Lab assay of single mutants.
Amino acid sequence: RLYEREDHKGLMMELSEDCPSIQDRFHLSEIRSLHVLEGCWVLYELPNYRGRQYLLRPQEYRRCQDWGAMDAKAGSLRRV
């Protein structure tokens, strides 16, 4: 689950498959919190699986710093 605000607030989007462009699919370029329910995912800073990568394991991420990012920029997401 992807959230537009910290602490799992605001608009929530659910994802169960790879997403090459978060902007195209959800009209957002920033994700401020996440909740990974199962499996491991890689969040990429840019669309089409480019830029900085962040490995996400099943857990709650209340803010972008929790997954190691300096800002909430999110371009794509892929399951590993």
Score class of each variant (00 low, 15 high):
1 R>S: 01
1 R>I: 15
1 R>G: 02
1 R>V: 07
2 L>G: 01
2 L>T: 05
2 L>M: 08
2 L>P: 00
3 Y>M: 03
4 E>M: 14
4 E>F: 08
4 E>T: 12
6 E>Y: 04
6 E>F: 04
6 E>R: 04
7 D>R: 06
7 D>M: 09
7 D>F: 10
7 D>Y: 12
9 K>T: 11
9 K>Y: 06
9 K>E: 15
10 G>A: 00
10 G>C: 01
10 G>Q: 03
10 G>Y: 05
11 L>D: 09
11 L>Y: 09
12 M>G: 08
12 M>N: 12
12 M>W: 10
12 M>S: 10
13 M>T: 07
13 M>W: 14
13 M>F: 09
14 E>L: 10
14 E>D: 06
14 E>T: 11
14 E>Q: 09
15 L>G: 00
16 S>V: 15
16 S>Q: 11
16 S>N: 14
17 E>M: 09
17 E>R: 07
17 E>H: 05
17 E>D: 14
17 E>P: 01
18 D>I: 03
18 D>A: 06
18 D>S: 11
18 D>V: 00
18 D>C: 04
19 C>G: 03
20 P>L: 05
20 P>R: 07
20 P>G: 07
20 P>F: 03
21 S>R: 07
21 S>E: 05
21 S>V: 05
21 S>P: 05
21 S>Y: 03
22 I>N: 05
22 I>T: 04
22 I>G: 01
23 Q>S: 11
23 Q>E: 14
23 Q>T: 15
24 D>G: 11
24 D>E: 15
24 D>P: 00
24 D>Y: 08
24 D>A: 14
25 R>T: 11
25 R>P: 03
25 R>L: 10
26 F>G: 07
26 F>N: 04
27 H>A: 13
27 H>Q: 14
27 H>F: 07
27 H>C: 12
27 H>S: 13
28 L>H: 07
28 L>I: 15
28 L>F: 08
28 L>E: 07
28 L>C: 14
28 L>A: 11
28 L>Q: 08
28 L>G: 07
29 S>G: 12
29 S>Y: 11
29 S>V: 08
30 E>A: 11
30 E>C: 12
30 E>H: 15
30 E>L: 07
30 E>M: 09
30 E>P: 00
31 I>Y: 02
31 I>A: 05
31 I>E: 00
31 I>W: 02
32 R>I: 05
32 R>Q: 08
34 L>D: 05
34 L>H: 02
35 H>L: 11
35 H>E: 15
35 H>Y: 10
35 H>T: 15
35 H>C: 10
35 H>I: 14
36 V>L: 04
36 V>Y: 00
36 V>S: 00
36 V>R: 00
36 V>N: 03
36 V>A: 03
37 L>V: 14
38 E>S: 14
38 E>K: 13
38 E>I: 04
38 E>Q: 15
38 E>W: 08
38 E>H: 12
38 E>Y: 08
39 G>Q: 02
39 G>W: 01
39 G>A: 05
39 G>Y: 05
39 G>C: 06
39 G>D: 08
40 C>T: 15
40 C>Q: 15
40 C>L: 14
40 C>G: 10
40 C>S: 15
40 C>R: 11
43 L>F: 04
43 L>W: 02
43 L>N: 04
43 L>G: 04
44 Y>G: 05
44 Y>D: 00
44 Y>N: 08
44 Y>T: 00
44 Y>H: 08
45 E>C: 03
45 E>M: 03
45 E>W: 04
45 E>Q: 10
46 L>Y: 11
47 P>V: 05
47 P>C: 12
48 N>Y: 14
48 N>T: 02
49 Y>P: 01
49 Y>N: 10
49 Y>F: 09
50 R>I: 10
50 R>P: 01
50 R>Y: 05
50 R>G: 15
51 G>L: 02
51 G>E: 04
51 G>Q: 06
52 R>Q: 11
52 R>T: 13
52 R>I: 08
53 Q>V: 03
53 Q>T: 10
53 Q>M: 08
53 Q>D: 09
53 Q>P: 11
53 Q>F: 07
54 Y>M: 04
54 Y>L: 03
54 Y>Q: 03
55 L>G: 13
55 L>A: 12
55 L>N: 09
56 L>F: 02
56 L>E: 01
57 R>H: 14
57 R>I: 05
58 P>L: 00
58 P>I: 05
58 P>T: 12
59 Q>N: 07
59 Q>P: 00
60 E>F: 06
60 E>M: 11
60 E>S: 14
60 E>T: 13
60 E>C: 10
60 E>L: 14
61 Y>M: 00
61 Y>W: 00
61 Y>S: 01
62 R>T: 09
62 R>M: 15
62 R>P: 10
62 R>V: 07
63 R>T: 15
63 R>K: 08
63 R>Y: 09
63 R>D: 05
64 C>Y: 12
64 C>N: 03
64 C>Q: 02
64 C>G: 05
64 C>H: 15
65 Q>Y: 11
65 Q>L: 11
65 Q>T: 14
65 Q>K: 13
66 D>A: 08
66 D>L: 06
66 D>W: 04
67 W>M: 02
67 W>V: 01
68 G>V: 00
68 G>T: 00
68 G>K: 05
69 A>G: 10
69 A>F: 06
69 A>M: 02
69 A>C: 05
70 M>L: 13
70 M>D: 15
70 M>G: 11
70 M>E: 15
71 D>A: 06
71 D>G: 11
71 D>F: 11
72 A>W: 07
72 A>T: 10
73 K>H: 14
73 K>C: 10
73 K>M: 09
73 K>G: 08
73 K>P: 05
74 A>T: 11
74 A>C: 10
75 G>S: 06
76 S>W: 06
76 S>R: 04
77 L>E: 00
77 L>A: 06
77 L>M: 14
77 L>V: 11
77 L>T: 05
80 V>L: 13
